[in-house]
Write a protein that binds this DNA or RNA. Structure first.
Lengths: 202, 202
DNA sequence: TGAATTTTGGACGCTTCAGTCCATTTGAAC
DNA sequence: GTTCAAATGGACTGAAGCGTCCAAAATTCA
């Protein structure tokens, strides 16, 4: 019997997405489909067979990466020790902003914001917005428990996330190198947590 | 006698830069020279007469805006009242990140970072980097005077600037609307200053 | 008015790239 | 080994857009 319909090679799909991630990260949204095909060792037509058009390819890429990148944030962990928890949160946020590969996705989204606003909004909701909401919930709970004194949790979450990204975010967006030394990240995370807690201590 | 050399119309140059700012802000780096010419009510050739090429046009635009944007930061003002000064600083930073027009420049820079890395670096140095250094100097001086206790001024400056931009930065980069209500900005600025001062009080 | 120069606008060459077409090859399932 | 969808790759179309060229019009100074 013949090959079954819909046997599109999943391995190839992944390879295409990996290649797209790389090439888009290097060249930005202007990267050509041909360059991606070359990187994936696949024919251009195959990319169209799999994804239909460039926009759909990028959407698929974003969908795959967003949930992966933000996964660590969905595990708040123990809540009894605010400074430790805040440090862990800060560490994760700083790592994300220091991860060139993760951030190249954001860059691509910024570039494409004009052409595909829905995509930009989706990334914003899945990433920064969700993160802020999560932190805000945590801060509200800590305040309820009397361990902190946060009057406006969303605003405070903003401040916390802002302290973590700082201008690493700028450097990453501009494609400049970002210091990703684990020791320095850990130290920075501790400082953020310590200062933030002091700003919002009861 | 004939017309003098170098009589290129300065008013037209300004008009072209204004139009470029608008159109690039709307369409991003992909905006065509023709669209800019149309907006400036000028012929395409005139743009080439004035600026030579698209890259030079964008560089000129960046140079003009960067100095304008960072101007308020070059006036530190009275240093005796940390909270007031910090509030003013915060206000300026928040206004910048809330100003769609000012921020479209950053967006364009991010978009073009791949194609013109020197430009991205120049913008980074002239904007965020200079801003941080300025704030750090101020914090160091306040610490010297015993009014604050900042152990690492550059790091603290990062935190301060990060608190100001927060995720407004994201929204602005993604081309989403940003709340620019003056009252809310003023209130936010006060809060940032208050919390920051508390985090770094002696 | 006249000379020198800029501006205009439209046509043009050239390159890049998205997306299509198609004849041929590959490879999995039976 | 047969069958048939999937993959290949190379050629092709069409659209955009950068930058150039040029002849005619407008502008400025003397």
């Amino acid at each position: 019997m013949p090959r079954v319909v819909g046997q599109i090679d999943q391995v190839k799909s992944e390879a295409i997405l990996d290649a797209a991630s790389d090439v888009l990260g290097e060249r930005g949204l202007g990267a050509s489909i041909e360059a991606i095909a070359r990187r994936a060792a696949v024919s251009k037509q195959t990319i169209y067979n799999h994804f239909g058009c460039k926009t759909a390819l990028i959407e698929a890429l974003v969908a795959r990466r967003v949930s992966h990148i933000t996964a660590p944030l969905r595990v708040p962990g123990a809540a009894e020790q605010p400074i430790e928890t805040l440090t862990a949160l800060a560490q994760t946020l700083i790592e994300i902003v220091s991860n060139v590969r993760a951030y190249s996705l954001i860059r691509v989204t910024v570039q494409g914001a004009g052409a595909m606003p829905e995509l930009a909004k989706a990334v914003f909701e899945a990433g920064p917005a969700t993160t802020r909401a999560l932190i805000a919930d945590y801060l509200a709970a800590e305040t309820q428990a009397g361990r902190m004194a946060v009057d406006d949790p969303m605003e405070a979450a903003e401040f916390f996330a802002g302290m973590c990204s700082g201008h690493r975010q700028f450097r990453a967006l501009m494609g400049m190198e970002v210091n990703a030394d684990p020791d320095q990240i850990a130290h920075l995370a501790q400082t953020v947590a310590k200062r933030f807690f002091r700003a919002y201590a009861p």
